[in-house]
Write a protein that binds this DNA or RNA. Structure first.
Length: 922
RNA sequence: GGUCGCGUAGCUCAGCUGGUUAGAGCGCUGCUUUCACACAGCAGAGGUCCAGGGUUCGAGUCCCUGCGUGACCACCA
């Protein structure tokens, strides 16, 4: 133990945080051991959190800061409670995102990926990732993340890649992966297909063009008007469709129209898909460039001409013949739209361009407008996978917090569509399918294939790679050793416990992990999903680097310390609520956290300079008679605060495998936990208890020892409660506390036991109420001093008058006097209610009622009257409910309502009775 | 278009199953450099809990309507 008990006047987080983190790492306290898990014969419950793997190229932003702080708080809490705690860190290779970065680099060098070729491109990306990747994980250490870095995973590592192939092959063998020919979302900039989730809707102001298609062979200039928002695709039209029951067009069905510009005759068909009420009730059918039209085309066995190239320029593709005229070939789709509109205007076939608000899908990586495109892709059949995932949330195996997200989750899974998993990229897990060049055999294999197993012909592997999410959906199992089912880590730590992430990836990642858990392990990956809020600026705009409204968490760490960052994030975050921070004024956002750290520091300084470094006595050895009222009060407050923190943090896992209704939505209220701990430290310990010890510590004798012991114990408890939120400063201070000699001490606060609590007993409650009265008296005297501008140095005589609590006040008059810097007498004549009565220096007299004290006689009378009335009503009600005549005759809902009322009144009666006994004694 | 959320002090928000005088941080006013702390202490000011209606002995809390605002989902071209 340190003999130097002087702390520097100022806490310097920069100096201490790094050193402490290194000591934790050196001691290996973040490393989890399989054999200590109860599931592997150990004596500890496992508690496991899997980190949402950030993109390997990412740099830390506030979103990560928030998310990982929440995870770390939960993980550190469980570690202190004594669980075998594992937090698995890792990164994601992020197919499109990473490939885009390398392509941008190449573009800056005047090259394209085609110049390099696939192999060199991948090699370059690997080198880039090796060099710069994982920086974000190093940054997470700066905010104190207590992950088990020995287990750091990477979705594209050889180990995890084994799992990816295994998953693909297994699903293929179970008939859940298939190759499909259909219209998918295509990004003309990234040149790859996207899943439905990757093509995000944005509301945009566009136009609904009304275009006249001349009816073939009709008299005069008869036309049929179609409505479209994408006229450039009309070159790929193979029909126009009307609703079969639409009286306006019934007679035209079966006839043909001339497709303008392409000058082709196409049929008028009937299909129920058409909504007669929208637009003109006539729809152009372009099967290769619209998913609905594709379905219509299939139903009517229409051809599917492709009139656009992969990069979004006009082209005569498959089945298109010469539909695209020469002057439009190679023209970008949006330019082509303009030209086609102008051309139609000229030929008077454009009848109208209505302003039209509609949702346009954009690439989630580069924001380019997505183009529907006909192509061959690999799909996962989702419905069978969704079933157990749906059941899990419905039956309480998995809960999602905040509760409202459960409905969103259920809704998505109920309407799930097949998942396009192939991407036309170079960066990612190559699809494990080989095609024979000779016999057209397709081989799906866990290992690389050299030759066709049927004919021995040469094979080539599918060019495409898998969606990044096809590797991350395996994260909870693959990081623990799957597909090796005998893996000790899998046995010890799967299923995991909490999954903490942003709601944006509920569908991308969370839902799919649940499906993968059931598909490959036949067990859910976790029992709790906690969705955090979003970090926004003061205008409620989501923080992002590109908008320039971001905050760099490392700036905050440098200026205010990691603890300040963490405290701000945790205390400011209601369950699932967004967190608003001012990026232009970091002081405003983070000073409260820093100030609180300073407060802790100063309590520590007081303690070390007054209590000193000599070991204190253990509070367990103190006899009740030794404890003063303030001692009893602060110990009671510590206990109450521990209870509050426990209640806010909630059960770590469902008690009986599944969440019961009562516990399902409780816990993980981190801001409440943080507030309870802060209140204890600042408002109880620092503002009151510490002040009461000032006259005691340093004096000779027993009472000084008692005060030293209690103060140290209370501060120790506070540091334990706060450690998950502010790990650095609490560890620093805790290391220097003058613990009792024989204390059974952990080496680090990070692994010290969480405070023990007990149910509050009646006499404890009474003692605490007494001290609250003392505080009221002190406040009343201070108010007199402040209101009447009594100078600090000037003593005044005050008398406290209270018949009801005279004993309490009499016993503690010196304490009241010391805390209010006045001379206090107890007792006086007008003592009906409690009041402080002072004679001012100028001779005038003032009276201030004591805040917490009411006119007891009156108040008790009122309460007793209410209680009496309630009891009368309640007994009448109960009698009625016991009367079978009533319960049988009255309608069920009335009886039900009366029963409910009986319950309410009973509850209220207990409340009132409690109050009466607390306030009025007996 | 569908679903869901939010509207409480100047600002950012707590307030869980209805029950004392509606809370916190920041900001604001006054006093104080008192030997842990001015990144502080003490004492204050500030709220028709969006509006209107309803249920109840009792509503910030539950129900309905309206206004404002946000999120998610969506194949009306």
């Amino acid at each position: 133990m340190s003999t130097n008990h002087d702390l520097p006047a100022q806490y310097d987080p920069g100096e201490t945080e790094r050193a402490i983190y290194q000591r934790w790492i050196d001691a290996g306290i973040f490393a989890a051991e399989e054999k200590r898990s109860r599931r592997n014969g150990g004596d500890r419950d496992p508690f496991v959190v899997v980190m949402p793997p950030p993109n390997v190229t990412a740099v830390l932003h506030m979103g990560h800061g928030l998310n990982n702080t929440v995870q770390d708080v939960v993980v550190r809490w469980r570690r202190m409670v004594g669980d075998e705690t594992l937090w698995v860190p890792g990164t994601d290779h992020a197919g499109i995102a990473t490939q885009n970065i390398i392509e941008k680099q190449l573009a800056a060098e005047g090259k394209s990926k085609a110049d390099l070729g696939r192999e060199a491109f991948v090699a370059r990306t690997v080198a880039f990732v090796e060099e710069t990747g994982g920086e974000i994980l190093r940054q997470l250490r700066a905010i104190g993340a207590s992950a088990d870095w020995n287990r750091t995973a990477y979705t594209f590592s050889p180990e995890l890649s084994v799992g990816v192939r295994e998953a693909f092959v297994q699903l293929y063998e179970r008939g859940l992966i298939y190759r499909g020919h259909r219209v998918i979302h295509w990004c003309p900039r990234c040149l790859t297909s996207l899943s439905d989730e990757e093509a995000e809707h944005t509301e945009e102001a566009g136009s609904l063009y009304h275009i006249a298609y001349p009816i073939a062979g009709a008299k005069g200039n008869a036309t049929l008007t179609v409505a479209t928002t994408r006229p450039e695709t009309m070159l790929g039209d193979v029909a126009v469709a009307v609703h079969p029951d639409d009286e306006r067009y019934k007679t035209l069905i079966g006839k043909t129209v001339m497709l303008p510009i392409a000058n082709i005759e196409i049929p008028i068909i009937a299909d129920e898909y058409v909504d007669p009420a929208f637009g003109t009730g006539v729809v152009k059918i372009t099967p290769a460039h619209d998913p609905n039209d594709f379905e219509v085309g299939k139903r009517h066995k229409l051809s599917m001409p492709v009139v656009m190239a992969a990069d979004g320029t006009m082209a005569n593709g498959i089945d298109a013949d010469a539909r695209v005229p020469a002057d439009l070939l190679g023209i970008d789709r949006f330019e082509a739209r303009e030209r086609i509109i102008r051309s139609l205007e000229k030929s008077k076939l454009l009848l109208e361009a209505q302003p039209h608000q509609h949702a346009v899908r954009h690439c989630y990586r580069c924001d380019t407008v997505v183009e529907p495109r006909l192509s061959d892709q690999w799909f996962v059949r989702m419905e069978p996978l969704a079933k157990p995932a749906l059941k899990a949330v419905r039956d309480g195996t998995i809960r999602i917090l905040p509760e409202r997200w459960e409905a969103v989750y259920v809704n998505w899974l109920e309407n799930i569509r097949d998942w396009n998993i192939s991407r036309q990229l170079w960066w990612g897990h190559r699809i494990p399918v080989w095609y024979c060049e000779k016999c057209d055999n397709a081989i799906v294999s866990r290992t690389d294939v050299a030759a066709c197993e049927k004919c021995g012909g040469t094979v080539r592997q599918d060019e495409d790679v898998l969606d990044t999410w096809f590797s991350s959906w395996l994260f909870p199992i693959s990081t623990l050793g799957w597909p090796d089912k005998s893996s000790a880590a899998l046995a010890a730590f799967y299923p995991t416990d909490d999954l903490i992430t942003a709601p944006e990836i509920l569908f991308f990642w969370v839902s799919r992990m649940i499906m993968a858990g059931y598909a490959f392990m036949d067990a859910p990956p976790f029992h709790t999903v906690y969705l955090t809020g979003t970090v926004r600026d003061m205008n409620h705009v989501k923080m992002s680097k590109s908008l320039g409204n971001g905050i760099d968490p490392l700036d905050v760490v440098n200026q205010f310390g990691a603890d300040a960052l963490r405290y701000t994030v945790i205390s400011g975050m209601g369950m699932g609520a967004d967190l608003m921070l001012d990026h232009r004024d970091l002081e405003r956002s983070f000073a409260p956290g820093r100030n609180f750290a300073t407060k802790l520091w100063n309590i520590g300084r007081f303690l070390l300079s007054n209590v000193g470094g000599t070991p204190v006595r253990s509070v367990d050895e103190l006899r009740d008679a030794d404890l003063t009222l303030p001692d009893r009060w602060i110990l009671g407050r510590l206990n109450a605060t521990t209870l509050e923190c426990n209640a806010a943090l909630g059960p770590a896992r469902p008690e009986k495998g599944k969440w019961r209704a009562e516990e399902r939505y409780s816990g993980l209220r981190l801001s409440e936990y943080s507030e309870a701990a802060r209140r204890f430290v600042w408002n109880d310990l620092a503002d009151w208890y510490l002040e009461t010890t000032k006259g005691r510590i340093g004096g000779a004798g027993n009472d000084s020892e008692v005060a030293r012991a209690v103060l140290t114990h209370a501060f120790d408890g506070a540091l334990r409660l706060l450690h998950p939120i502010m790990p650095f400063i609490t560890e620093t201070l805790w290391q220097r506390l003058p613990f009792p000699v024989d204390a059974d001490r952990a080496e680090f606060l990070a692994v010290a036991p969480w405070p023990i609590s007990h149910p509050v007993a009646g006499e404890e409650r009474a003692a605490m109420a007494s001290f609250d009265l003392i505080c009221d008296a002190v406040r009343a005297v201070r108010q007199i001093r402040s209101d009447y501008a009594i100078p600090p140095g000037k003593a005044i005589d005050v008398s406290i008058q209270s018949r009801a609590n005279e004993t309490v006040f009499r016993d503690h008059a010196p304490l009241i006097g010391r805390l209010s810097r006045s001379t206090v007498q107890i007792g006086g004549e007008s003592a009906e209610a409690g009041a402080a009565h002072a004679v001012l220096p100028d001779g005038s007299e003032v009276i201030v009622p004591l805040g917490g004290l009411v006119d007891l006689t009156k108040e008790c009378g009122k309460l007793r009257a209410e209680l009496e009335q309630l009891e009368t009503q309640l007994s009448a009600l109960s009698k009625r409910l016991q009367n079978e005549g009533f319960t049988k005759r009255a309608p069920a809902n009335v009886v039900e309502a009366e029963r409910k009322k009986e319950q309410d009144w009973t509850k209220r009666r207990v409340q009132l009775a409690d109050k009466v006994s607390a306030l009025c004694g007996g």
